[in-house]
Simulated assay, not measured.
Amino acid sequence: MYLPVRLFVSILFLLGSGSGSTIPSITKPSQPLPLIIWHGLGDNYAAEGLAYVGELANETNPGTYVYNIRLDEDPGSDRTATFFGNVTEQLAQVCDTLATHPILSLAPAVNAIGFSQGGQFLRGYVERCNNPPVRNLVTFGSQHNGIADFQACAPTDWLCKGAMALLKVNTWSNYVQSRLVPAQYYRSCNISTGEPTPEYIENSNFLADINNERVLKNTKYAANIAGLNKFVMYLFRDDTTVIPKESGWFAQVTNLTSGVVTPLRNRTIYKEDWLGLKKLDEKGGLVFRETEGGHMKLSDELLIKVFKDFFGPVEEKGKKVEDMLMQDGEGSEEL
C-alpha cells in the first residue's frame, strides 16, 4: 500500500497544487521550503502557541508547509514524551517519520526551528540523519552545551515535579539516562575549570554524543553541521530557566559562581572543529543573536524577522534550490 500512495503524492507534486488542493507545490521557484518545528519541554505539538507560529510563518512566506514534530498523535502523550523517554530512540523515530513523510520526503530541503530543548534535538537530527536535509536551522534558548542545573517547575505541574525529583536521584544511572529527557542533556563540569566530568563523558545518553565530546569523533556529525547554509542561535538575555543561559551559544561557563564565560570560538570544540561549527563559521553560516526577555519570550516582530531573513523562498535569479544548499550566506555575527 505504501509505494502507490507515495507515487500518487509524487505525481501531485510534479503537477503542482491544483485548485482547492491542500498539498503544496514545492517545485515552484517562488515556493518556500517546508518548515519543521520541534517544541520544548512541557509543550505539545498541537498547542495553540505553536499553531500560531505556523500561521505567522505562512503569512510571512505564503505557501509554507509547516510540520510540528510530534512523538505521539495524542497531545497529552506528546507532552509526556518531553519529560520521559529515551532521546536517542525518540530522535530515531523522528528521523524515520520525516524520511517517509509524504510531503517532507519529497522536498529538496527543509528549514527548521527549535524551541528550547527542541533546538538541540533538531541539531541531533541534522547530525544523525538529515533526511530531508535542513537548509537553515534556527534555535531559541536551546541547551547546546547542556545544562548545569534542572529547571524549576510550576507549582501544580506534577509531571514536571516528578521528573525533576527523579533526575536528582542518580543522574548518571542507566535507568535515568534512558528514561528522563532533561537528564540526557545535563552536563556536569569541574566547578573551577568548566571541563566535563568523566561521569558525563562516559554515561551521557545524548549530549556527549551529539557534541562529539568523546575520544572517537563522528565525522558525519561535523560534515552535516558544516553543510548547513545557516545555523542561527538565539539567546534570551534574561533567561533564568536555562542554566547557564550561555549554553544557547555553545559557550561554556567556567565557574557558575563567578559567571566567567568561555565563548564558543575560544573552546576546543570549535578550535578542533569537532562539530563542523568552525567550517560553517568560516563560510559565514554561524550566527549568534540575542533577544531581550526571559526564556521563550517571543514577539511577533522577532518571529517575522526570522521568517523573512531565513525561511523565505531560496531560489533567486535562476539559481536552483539544490545549488543554494551549500552556498555561503551573509557574514556571521556575535552580540
Rank of each mutant, 00 (worst) to 15 (best):
N205D: 03
Q93T: 13
V287E: 13
D74E: 11
S19L: 14
A47H: 02
G114C: 02
N229A: 12
K305F: 00
A152D: 15
V314M: 08
Q120D: 09
A223E: 14
H101T: 02
R289E: 15
Q90F: 03
S10T: 08
T197M: 04
L98N: 02
Q252D: 09
V5C: 10
P32K: 00
V134R: 06
P34D: 01
N58F: 01
D72H: 10
L298D: 01
T82I: 07
G331I: 13
T241R: 07
L180N: 09
A226T: 04
W158Q: 14
V126F: 04
F140L: 10
W274K: 14
K28Q: 10
L303I: 04
I210C: 05
D239M: 07
E213D: 13
T219K: 12
K217Y: 02
P196H: 02
D273N: 07
P62A: 05
A46V: 04
E301A: 11
T291M: 15
Q151L: 11
L56C: 14
L106A: 04
L167A: 12
L286F: 03
S116N: 06
A251I: 05
L264V: 03
E59R: 00
V261N: 02
L106I: 04
H144P: 14
P102R: 09
V232M: 10
T156F: 08
Q120L: 13
T100F: 09
P244E: 14
Q184P: 08
E89P: 06
I304P: 02
V176W: 02
V134A: 03
T88E: 10
D328L: 01
G49E: 03
T27I: 11
K28C: 13
T60N: 00
G276H: 03
R237A: 10
A92I: 00
M164Q: 12
H101S: 03
K297E: 14
D239C: 10
A109Q: 06
S258E: 07
I269C: 10
C189V: 13
T257H: 02
D157L: 12
V110L: 11
D239E: 08
E301W: 03
A107L: 09
F206N: 07
L122K: 06
T64Y: 00
N131D: 12
L33M: 09
I225N: 09
M326R: 15
Q184H: 05
K161M: 11
P196C: 05
F231V: 03
I269M: 03
S10E: 10
R135G: 01
G114H: 09
W172R: 07
E333I: 06
P155A: 12
I11S: 14
Q143A: 12
I11D: 08
T100V: 07
P102V: 01
